[in-house]
Simulated scan of single mutants.
Amino acid sequence: MKPRVEVVALDCLMVRLFDEISEANMPWMLAASEGLREAFGNHLIDLVPSYTTLMVHYDLMALNPTQARELIAEALIDLSPNARAKGKCHVLPVWYDLSVGPELTLLSRRSGLTVPEVIHRHSEHEYQVFALGFAPGFAFMGLVEEILAAPRLNTPRKKVAAGSVGIAERQTAAYPLVSPGGWNLIGRTPAKLFDRERDGYSLLQPGDTVRFEAVSHAEFINLGGDDTPLETLA
């Protein structure tokens, strides 16, 4: 690992730790996040993690760019992953059904697997939460098995229901709110992924892990799920 610092804005620097996406990156990303928060202290406005980078937004009234770079270098000295710095493991119930996951058939055709096999493969893996973005509480997770990977839709949908679970390339995610979207939808979770009353707002945070658990329609409804078919969304 050879960290590089890149300029994003007058008061933002990007720390690039890796060039390739890997689940093995996360312990190092968490260790670097902890070190940067300690080094910048009250002068840190925001720290935004992604798959391979950490964006450092600092107080330009307190630090100049040279000082910010010095703090970054200080934070990354003798960096080592902290085995104890692990996020939470979440189990998200999912109702996998064509009425809410119309791309189940598409993924079945692309992969050569049956729809039940697609569901089994997606739900048997524990996914790493790499980053939050796109919408409040939208967690980018991976890595999906290559056999299930599929490109985004050529034409994004104008409206995707909250809780919709999808796949894009080797990423998977659940939409926290009703929004446009172009991911391949395979099911829906009743979990409340974004809540203004929750500390941190988002249920999922970088460093957490997620396992999707297939549930029946009855279980989905009992858990508060909305089974409105995708095509009937107003």
Rank of each mutant, 00 (worst) to 15 (best):
A139M: 06
T114H: 05
V8D: 00
S164M: 11
K88L: 09
E231R: 15
A161P: 07
E74T: 12
Q67D: 08
I221E: 11
A24D: 15
L153M: 07
P116H: 09
G35A: 04
E169L: 12
F18M: 08
I77Y: 09
L36W: 10
E145M: 11
P65K: 08
M29V: 13
L132P: 01
L54H: 13
E146F: 06
P190G: 04
T52S: 03
F220Q: 03
M61G: 14
E145I: 04
M141W: 14
L104Y: 02
L203W: 11
R196M: 14
V178Q: 09
L63M: 09
N82F: 03
V115Q: 03
P229M: 12
I72L: 01
R196Q: 10
N184I: 00
V115W: 12
A62G: 06
T155E: 12
A214N: 13
E219S: 14
T172K: 03
L47V: 08
Y201L: 04
G112N: 06
S179Q: 11
A73F: 11
Y201K: 11
W28C: 02
I221H: 03
R170I: 10
R157W: 10
V115S: 00
Y127K: 07
E23D: 12
A139N: 00
R157H: 13
L60S: 11
G181Y: 10
E231P: 09
I77A: 08
G182H: 05
V115M: 02
M1D: 09
S22N: 11
A68H: 01
F212Q: 00
E213K: 15
S179A: 13
D46S: 13
N222C: 04
P116E: 05
A62Q: 15
S164K: 06
V160F: 02
A31Q: 00
G101P: 03
N42I: 05
A83G: 00
P229L: 12
S99K: 10
R4I: 12
G87I: 05
W183A: 03
S202P: 12
R152H: 05
L10K: 12
L185T: 02
H43E: 14
E213N: 11
M1W: 09
L132H: 04
R152T: 04
D195S: 03
L113R: 05
F194T: 06
T66Y: 08
T66G: 11
L153P: 01
G41L: 10
I186C: 01
F40E: 02
K2W: 06
K2T: 14
L13N: 04
T155V: 14
T209E: 06
Y201P: 00
A85I: 12
R170W: 07
N42E: 15
S202A: 15
I186L: 07
H217D: 02
V144P: 02
Y127F: 13
E38M: 08
P93A: 08
V118N: 00
R196G: 11
T189I: 01
L203Y: 08
C89Q: 15
E70P: 01
A150W: 01
G137T: 10
A161I: 05
L30E: 08
Q171P: 01
P190K: 04
A85D: 04
P65C: 07
G41M: 11
D208A: 02
D78M: 05
S99C: 07
L98K: 06
H120D: 12
V7Y: 05
D208I: 05
G182I: 07
L13V: 07
G137E: 02
H120E: 13
N42P: 04
I72G: 00
L47C: 09
R37Y: 10
S22M: 02
